[in-house]
């Protein structure tokens, strides 16, 4: 499970720390283990301008959140959601899916995690928070326009 890529992201997380400006901030917890993450999202003209985060959790949740920021920052919201879907599908695959590196980049390292149902939620914590915040940010902009 503990691939080198995961350990690298865990030890040196990308885009970590809460930054301004942002549109929406959400706080998600995993009630079964107490892991938590705060995610800020800024969306501009349909592009995920920035995602920043802070949290505490295990290597899997921290590394997955770091990988997530690589995959969504600077992308169109729709493309980022495609990556989200692909990661979700991988996590639900129970180890039976060959992940697509073009779509998931470092995220492919989590294929093994999908064999451990107890850890899938860890891997999805940051993603779920990002999706929630992004949906809120998009809705907010629709309202404003």
């Amino acid at each position: 499970m503990y691939q080198e890529i995961i350990l690298d992201h865990y030890r040196n997380p990308h885009h970590k720390g809460l930054r301004d400006p942002f549109d929406v901030e959400v706080h998600h917890v995993n009630p079964t283990c107490g892991d938590e993450v705060t995610v800020r999202v800024r969306v501009l003209d349909g592009i995920v301008e920035d995602v920043s985060y802070d949290g505490q959790g295990c290597s899997i949740s921290q590394a997955a959140t770091s990988v997530m920021t690589d995959l969504v920052i600077g992308r169109k919201v729709d493309d980022a959601l495609v990556a989200h879907e692909a990661f979700l599908e991988l996590m639900q695959s129970k180890g039976k899916l060959e992940p697509d590196e073009d779509v998931l980049e470092d995220g492919i390292a989590f294929a093994g995690v999908s064999k451990y149902p107890a850890r899938v939620k860890c891997a999805l914590l940051g993603w779920m928070a990002w999706k929630d915040a992004t949906a809120q940010a998009v809705a907010k902009q629709k309202e404003a326009s």
Partner: peptide, 24 residues
């Protein structure tokens, strides 16, 4: 992190519980 402690111990065949133990 306790999760990683528990997972690594499991690799060694050792079952411990990790989390807040329903006493957050």
């Amino acid at each position: 992190h306790p999760h990683d402690v528990g997972q690594s111990l499991d690799d060694l065949g050792i079952a411990v519980r990790v989390g807040h133990h329903c006493a957050a």
